[in-house]
């Protein structure tokens, strides 16, 4: 299991390498990226903040839950923090399993749960110069 919060650019080759294995017949790599348009408003950049100790612990718990549910060979979750420009990768989730169905299911579970449980917040930098914390309510 590789769990990481980082201020550096996420290198997809590294994330793939964490889960690559001769025991796996499938690797699913999900990347979350910074989108320009949200409900008709234009984003110029995002700032990510976190409660790092809890984010790390929650991501580890999530990965363990996935390992308990699916026959996972290896799993990696890397979340970027700080200032991100359009198109940059904010999060990477990688799962390797013997067969593809489990890799897709586990990958979906991990990113869906991460988005409701892991204490990370994004702040929108809108094109009109205003900023706004995103907090789904």
């Amino acid at each position: 299991m590789h769990i990481e919060l980082t201020n550096d650019v996420i290198q997809t080759e590294d994330v793939y390498a964490y889960v690559s294995s001769k025991d796996a017949g499938a690797v699913v790599l999900f990347l979350g990226t910074v989108r320009e348009m949200t409900s008709g408003r234009q984003t110029v950049a995002l700032d990510y903040d976190a409660y790092p100790e809890m984010a790390q612990a929650q991501m580890q718990d999530l990965a363990q839950e996935a390992i308990d549910k699916w026959p996972i060979v290896n799993v990696a979750i890397v979340h970027r923090l700080g200032h991100l420009e359009l198109g940059e990768i904010s999060v990477a989730v990688a799962v390797s399993t013997p067969h593809r169905r489990d890799a897709f299911e586990a990958g979906q579970y991990l990113i869906d749960e991460l988005k409701v449980r892991v204490p990370v917040w994004k702040k929108e930098n809108w094109s009109d110069g205003t900023t706004e914390w995103v907090h789904p309510t």
Partner: peptide
């Protein structure tokens, strides 16, 4: 305790 808004990572 720690207190924060609903998370919005990913």
């Amino acid at each position: 305790l720690v207190c924060f808004p609903p998370v919005s990572g990913g």
